[in-house]
Design a protein around this nucleic acid. Structure first.
Length: 120
DNA sequence: ACATTGACTTGTT
DNA sequence: CAACAAGCCAATG
């Protein structure tokens, strides 16, 4: 019977093996504590199979356990502050709790905190 | 199935 | 340095 690989995305399963969504979530979950990546970085890591915008969409409705706060924009700023779904400053607070230091202008140093898998 | 939106990025003016 | 435009893909109504 058709396994209906399905998009039961509503809550819990979302388990389509090989799905773009799952790959993105896997990457985000792989970000080590105290490091961050930007949306375009994920897009590149997946060989541009997904656009940075789409990454943001997935993270917007991502399941628990995914460290979405470790994903920032290319400017090293917390894009979550632009939304109303997430309290402003929350992402920054969470990152600071992991040892990520922010500058006075509210941005973080990507040269230092950007995750480089080769450096691990 | 179509139109709109959105936690983006890069390049041009 | 700031504003604008285009490319981009998935989710939502």
């Amino acid at each position: 019977m058709t396994p209906a690989f399905g998009k039961r995305v509503h809550g819990e399963i979302e388990g389509s093996p090989g799905s773009i969504r799952e790959e993105v979530l896997a990457i985000v979950s792989s970000i080590p504590r105290g490091k961050v990546v930007n949306y375009g970085w994920i897009s590149r890591m997946m060989n541009s199979r997904i656009s940075p915008l789409a990454v943001g969409w997935m993270l917007h409705r991502c399941p628990e356990g995914v460290p979405w706060h470790r994903v920032v924009n290319a400017s090293g700023r917390c894009s979550t502050d632009r939304t109303g779904d997430i309290p402003q400053g929350l992402q920054r607070a969470m990152l600071e709790g992991e040892g990520v230091d922010f500058r006075l202008d509210g941005s973080l140093d990507l040269e230092v905190f950007l995750w480089d898998p080769d450096d691990e």
